[in-house]
Design a protein around this nucleic acid. Structure first.
Lengths: 209, 209
DNA sequence: CGAGTGATTGACTTAGATCAATGACCGTGG
DNA sequence: CCACGGTCATTGATCTAAGTCAATCACTCG
């Protein structure tokens, strides 16, 4: 799923890890693209100055996300990338990526697929954000991430981080969780959120114990 | 930019237009993918049943948008597509697309680029949604769509549609526009929104008349 | 043990959503 | 040619839920 998983070993080996202090530029707009980055730690923001001189944020990449995917084909970067926190990134050199794309159709397909998959999940997040209520956003998140067997979601990281992912303050998320638990819609246990099926759902194949 | 623009003419010719009534399925999950669709008119929703039986919306495609881009490589559809309104779509047959992708590297690159571009703009929209205030969302939109020469944005379609794109009610958008105009931040004329540069900006190269 | 952070809850504020009404405009059909 | 229905643009009044500020408790790490 993440970029590292399907890259040929020689590109992995040729990748370079870079550490950034808060405020460091990773790259600047209209500068030749040297490759695609993956964020390993911290947060890196991509932004651009608008014609009036304001900085417009296009994307804030968090660990596991890649940036500047289109620069596999060369050209210049189209925005500025700045570390918002101390951060660690991995650079996959453009010439190697492009060469692989051109010579190994399996890789080209994998790369294209990855972009399509990311697009699907970005769009899903937009849909999530179309809902204003904390509970609806949470439900959407749970629905998309639920383990079908257990009808539950293991929360990765902290609830605060989840709140950020949902575009909510942590307080709102805590309250939504609390109320949904009160009302019996969900049930929490450690860092796992179990969803209680609506009345009249048979659990089908997974009848345990 | 849109998919039609770089497709080889033979694929364009082979594409099929389909009209949908509200509620019609365009395709269903786990059904063999026959191609990539472009929405010409109306709104088509992509959704999936979650393990608990709720319908989760992944994406609502509007005119100009494509869906199921990953199915260029075949396989099954991964969600259900239903017309939310009366709609018109164009189908680009998967076998032709794949053949072209495999045999014409320029096309493969163009297709990959298109996905990367869409990803950039989807991410930008997520950033926009991270802002809760109507004015900030509007500013973000203006910054991204501003004509650099005129420092203005021509609104496509109605303001109501724009409100939807910004994730706001139309009333909120009207009020935000009105207040920003009152305060001199913007200036409206027909369907164009002109942005008044913050104090102390020289317009640089475009000093006209 | 004390600092730092996450989880949680309470009190209060506020801006967006909602409901409602009005005027402008546009196309259609009689 | 005009009346009528529909939609957009706009504004007012009100509601509500999320944001904000603040406090507490548990836990971890050095």
């Amino acid at each position: 799923m993440s970029i590292g998983e399907y890259l040929p070993p020689e590109i992995k080996k040729a990748s370079v890890v870079r550490k950034l202090q808060r405020g460091d530029f990773l790259f600047q707009r209209n500068t030749p693209a040297i490759g695609v980055y993956e964020v390993l730690e911290g947060r890196v923001s991509m932004s651009r100055l608008d014609p009036v001189g304001r900085d417009v944020i296009l994307f804030v990449a968090t660990p596991g996300e890649t940036l500047a995917e289109a620069t596999i084909f060369g050209g210049n970067y189209h925005c500025n990338a700045v570390a918002l926190t101390q951060a660690i990134v991995r650079l996959y050199p453009q010439p190697l990526l492009l060469q692989e794309y051109e010579q190994n159709q399996q890789f080209a397909i994998a790369y294209t697929r990855m972009l399509a998959r990311q697009l699907v999940s970005a769009r899903a997040r937009i849909e999530q954000r179309n809902m204003q209520s904390a509970r609806d956003r949470l439900r959407h998140f749970l629905s998309l991430n639920m383990d079908p067997e257990r009808l539950s979601v293991k929360v990765r990281g902290t609830l605060k981080e989840l709140a950020g992912e949902l575009g909510l303050t942590h307080e709102s998320l805590y309250r939504a969780l609390a109320r949904m638990e009160e009302e019996g819609e969900i049930y929490r246990q450690n860092n796992e959120i179990m969803v209680r099926p609506p009345a009249g759902m048979s659990s089908g194949s997974t009848e345990e114990d």
